[in-house]
């Protein structure tokens, strides 16, 4: 297998969730976070998953990216059943095919922006030279070409989120999944993140965003609302 991972599915669908249910055990009782959700995400999509807090948006995002597996139903990612894969096989798939963006960025504070982006590239076995070149290119793509050697503590919230997006793009994934990416940002910075997502999507990147942010949701090509673990529209 090359560092870029297995060959992409050519049928144009990145991920398909079929009748997915996810239960959690909390304090001895079962909490149903998702109830029979089905959806398909084609290549090039920009989908916003909205819904109130606790509705199951993040859970759905985690299932689509193979961070979690459903209690019932199945999720096929590039035509592979995530439920039948081992934890490490799913981790390997995520490393190569899924770019994850978190509300709290989760950058390593001891590393520079460039090193943070290099991290997933190093994990797939790229050598230092190629790693650096690709990380630099990703940071230039998110307009941080002049902040390569800055540590997260030296960057604004919006800049940190763009470093996180560059990290998500590092291994040229099939899909970028962002969980409340503007949750920690002010309005104008949120707008710049939306602009960046639109630009990336225009360039062909498939993006799914779970968000409360109506402006971000309206900026997506498609919108899907989750209420009480069910898809409303």
């Amino acid at each position: 297998m090359s560092p870029a991972g297995p060959a992409r599915d050519t049928r144009g669908v990145i991920v398909v969730a079929t009748d997915v249910t996810r239960d959690y055990r909390m304090s001895g009782s079962i909490v149903r976070a998702l109830r029979g959700v089905s959806l398909s995400i084609p290549e090039g999509d920009f989908l916003a998953i909205t819904g109130p807090s606790g509705s199951g948006k993040s859970t759905l995002l985690h299932l689509l990216g193979g961070v979690d597996v459903p209690t019932a139903g199945n999720v096929r990612f590039l035509d592979r059943d995530l439920g039948s894969m081992s934890v490490e096989a799913r981790a390997s798939l995520r490393l190569r095919e899924v770019g994850l963006v978190f509300q709290r960025f989760h950058l390593l504070p001891m590393l520079t922006a460039l090193e943070n982006v290099e991290l997933p590239l190093a994990a797939v076995g790229l050598g230092p030279g190629e790693r650096r070149a690709r990380a630099e290119e990703r940071l230039v793509r998110v307009d941080l070409g002049d902040r390569l050697d800055h540590r997260p503590g030296e960057l604004s919230g919006g800049q940190r989120q763009r470093v996180a997006i560059a990290r998500a793009l590092a291994n040229d994934p099939a899909i970028v999944l962002a969980d409340e990416p503007t949750g920690e940002l002010d309005r104008s910075t949120s707008r710049s993140v939306l602009d960046l997502f639109r630009r990336l999507n225009d360039d062909g990147t498939t993006i799914v965003v779970a968000t409360h942010d109506l402006e971000l949701a309206e900026g997506a090509r498609r919108r899907l609302e989750v209420v009480d673990g069910r898809v409303e529209a």
């Binding site: 995520r94 899924v98 978190f102 989760h106 390593l108 994990a123």
Partner: peptide, 16 residues
């Protein structure tokens, strides 16, 4: 823990 979870989520192998 949050950072470790994020690293695992983005696919960094456990052994690493």
């Amino acid at each position: 823990l949050g950072t470790i979870a994020a690293l695992r989520a983005i696919g960094i192998p456990r052994m690493r």
